[in-house]
Nucleic acid binder design. Structure first.
Lengths: 146, 146
DNA sequence: AAAATTGATACTATATTAGTATCAATTAAA
DNA sequence: TTTAATTGATACTAATATAGTATCAATTTT
């Protein structure tokens, strides 16, 4: 069971790149090359981000994409919802013939509990946080005295 | 994003049926009819459960399937793993070109944390627990005095 | 005017999920 | 002892989701 698909995975990486260069435009091509993301695939992902007001774009030479929304306000939950649809543990709770009138769906309660746990865990993770983690990880490790 | 696929969903329902009739054999046909699960599909799911020692079967007339493992020892995590593969948040942590030597995968830490949270949440939910919830839900509601 | 870029959209390929069908072997019961 | 109900094994099809490619018009800098 794979929780993050390539869409979301690529989208996160691209956003990290944009967040790191906040205030300037990065072209899809440069992001694709640097982060090993299929170019045309990435372009679609970026266009989707524009629709959700996460980033803005500029056409033409020297154009590209730039961060719009505060990276600390962009959660992994949001990105999953954009690229994989709302997190739902099972369809069962929506199907009348199973969970409707007479027999109550036994899974419903547990499912909703887990659903909210999963969502809130992913909500704790923002692009801003990931970026700080990344920067910390890229710092040279301090030498230890013997 | 759908966490439980039909496989797992059906499997859970079938196990609940078997757990409720612990000690006697239920045919695939009867389970399929009662719980609205496609017959041949269900048969495959049941055969898989045999391989994992959750249930046993008896051939021929009056044959069917019977609970083997203690329902309290069967977790939803196990069923997800059987029918949807091990819960993994992203493939990224296994791909050398991203997470390998030089650049550490920034997502790795968060991913593993969330992964374990998700797994442990599903581990809290056993077939035994669901069955008790189901039985409780089916009890007639006590009347309230006005 | 040329080159680099995005916007929009259509297309193909692959994998996963869902569901169906078939036939041999087994067992209970008529 | 024959028949019917059942599982075991396996192959097949259909539908959907995921992943990736291609094209062309519009825009903008040089």
């Amino acid at each position: 069971m794979k929780v993050l698909t390539k869409n979301t995975d690529y989208a996160i990486r691209a956003l990290l790149a944009l967040a790191a260069k906040k205030g300037s435009y990065l072209s899809a091509k440069s992001i694709a090359t640097e982060h090993d993301i299929p170019y045309q695939f990435l372009r679609r992902l970026l266009q989707e981000m524009i629709r959700y007001d996460l980033i803005v774009s500029k056409d033409g030479v020297q154009g590209g994409f730039m961060m719009k929304k505060d990276p600390d306000e962009i959660t992994v939950t949001q990105l999953i919802e954009i690229y994989q649809g709302k997190v739902q543990v099972s369809e069962c709770m929506f199907r009348k013939q199973i969970c409707g009138n007479r027999a109550r769906c036994v899974l419903r309660h547990e499912i909703m509990r887990i659903e909210s746990v999963v969502q809130s865990e992913f909500e704790k993770v923002t692009i801003g946080k990931l970026l700080r983690d990344l920067e910390a990880a890229n710092k040279p490790e301090p030498e230890l005295k013997p």
